[in-house]
């Protein structure tokens, strides 16, 4: 599908676009050639930097790291979803005190960098005698920062549900709680599936600071490989490709899910006159 920002180009514009495409293609090709040439001159294509990728043990080690990454990402994702919904409920409460408290909580976790929170769990909390495995010192801060964002995502979804849906449910005799559970939330979640998935990508990327707490994730294991084989560029290159592939797969999944539910929830213009 064409991005719908511009109207269909006329003949003049088409010529301009063609010229622009040719020039930028040449420029990009030149940069690529230069990069590859530089790497070659520095001996980065030397077999000593790459031969260990031919060994199963290297891949097994990376896969173990990947499993660690997946474990943290999935756990953090699940916790963040649950907390996000919980925070959202607090935030939309009609009780001003409750709503105010959750507003502060949400903005705190949304605004704080997850690395800072990880340092807090890693350095501050243990000094009060609370012991926690590295897994949780990594997973909890990531969950918390993501839950702040997700709470706002869910709230946007709830607000996007036309108010007529609520009115119709109320006039059937449903209580406020039931309206929220049966009518509003199911629709709100469908609206925000794309944003939920992009937040999941952020969670996956956040896990890469695992080295701070010495948790063996993909990047941490990659660092071990780097020091073992003294080969920085090749290992980082391979690991970057793995991250990109994973996140690309998650995004594809998001697009597909959005398309599926999107066609189902399309509503006609919903306006209510005064």
């Amino acid at each position: 599908m064409r991005d719908a920002l511009f109207e269909a180009p006329g003949p003049k514009t088409k010529r301009k676009i063609l010229v622009g495409t040719i020039i930028s293609s040449i420029a990009i090709a030149a940069i690529l050639v230069w990069v590859v040439l530089r790497l070659y001159q520095m001996g980065q294509f030397d077999a000593s930097y790459w031969y260990f990728f031919g060994q199963w043990s290297t891949w097994r080690f990376l896969l173990q790291g990947l499993a660690g990454t997946a474990e943290v990402a999935v756990t953090a994702g699940v916790i963040a979803l649950a907390l996000g919904i919980l925070f959202m409920f607090g935030r939309i409460s009609k009780n001003r005190v409750v709503s105010g408290i959750f507003r502060v909580i949400i903005n705190f976790f949304r605004g704080i960098p997850s690395l800072l929170l990880i340092y807090f769990f890693f350095l501050v909390i243990p000094s009060y005698g609370i012991k926690m495995p590295a897994f949780w010192m990594l997973t909890l801060p990531i969950s918390l920062t993501a839950s702040g964002v997700l709470a706002e995502v869910f709230r946007a979804g709830v607000n996007a549900v036309p108010k007529g849906q609520r009115e119709a449910a109320l006039s059937l005799g449903m209580t406020e709680g039931k309206v929220l559970r049966k009518i509003i939330l199911p629709q709100a979640i469908r609206y925000v599936i794309p944003s939920l998935i992009s937040q999941l990508v952020v969670v996956v990327k956040d896990t890469s600071v695992a080295y701070v707490v010495s948790f063996p994730d993909l990047l941490q294991n990659a660092r071990v490989l780097i020091s073992n084989y003294d080969s920085l560029v090749s290992v980082y290159f391979v690991v970057a490709i793995i991250y990109i592939l994973i996140n690309y797969a998650i995004n594809e999944l998001a697009v597909r899910m959005a398309r599926q539910s999107g066609t189902k929830v399309v509503t006609r213009a919903q306006e209510n006159p005064v």
Partner: peptide
């Protein structure tokens, strides 16, 4: 408010200009 209001609403049907069928 509350359950009493919901119970009364359950006894009165309402039809809206924009239909408001549950989209999901």
């Amino acid at each position: 408010e509350g359950k009493e209001l919901a119970a009364t609403r359950a006894e009165i049907g309402m039809v809206f200009q924009s239909f408001n069928l549950f989209a999901h």
